[in-house]
Amino acid sequence: MADQGRSLFQWGLPAVLGWLIPGAGHMLLGQVKRGLIIFVAISALFYTGVAVGGTMTVDRQSEPYWFLAQMGSGAHGLVGWYRQDQVYRELLAEPGFVEAAGRLVDRMPNKQMAIDARLAKRGIALTYPEDNIAHAYTGVAGMLNVLCAFDAAMLALMIGAKKRAARLETQSEGGAA
């Protein structure tokens, strides 16, 4: 049971850390240069996407599938989500917004379109082709980071297996002597 817990910790920590901070899983396992390159590559991809798309790049409400992919980039995705959520909360708190949205429902299919209209008024609505570029960059960064976190977990398991094999070898040599 203790061995199982240790094994879960052994590969779980690099995986979770690698998801939260891109490349941190590899750095934890002693592969600092590899981890730094992963961090720079994934962060550059994610923030290029945010620079192209602005605040509404990470949008849980209107782009749920892209949002899922973006969340793969860990802390970067969470920061993007926090900023987008702040804008939504500000919009909903604007005086008269709920009433205006209610009136717009007659002309627009749903409340989301009323929100989009307000976003456009503020100059932060995401439209073609910027939306495609921003979502591709941030989504790909997220999916790549999941792959990196998985790789860090596999690396941790391999290192653990090698250590166990070396220990067993030493023990058997000790027994033979």
Binding site: V50, A51, V52, G53, T55, G123, P129, E130, A134
Partner: peptide
Amino acid sequence: FVHPMEIPAAQA
């Protein structure tokens, strides 16, 4: 990082 860039569709 707040406002979207303006990118012509042909350059996308």
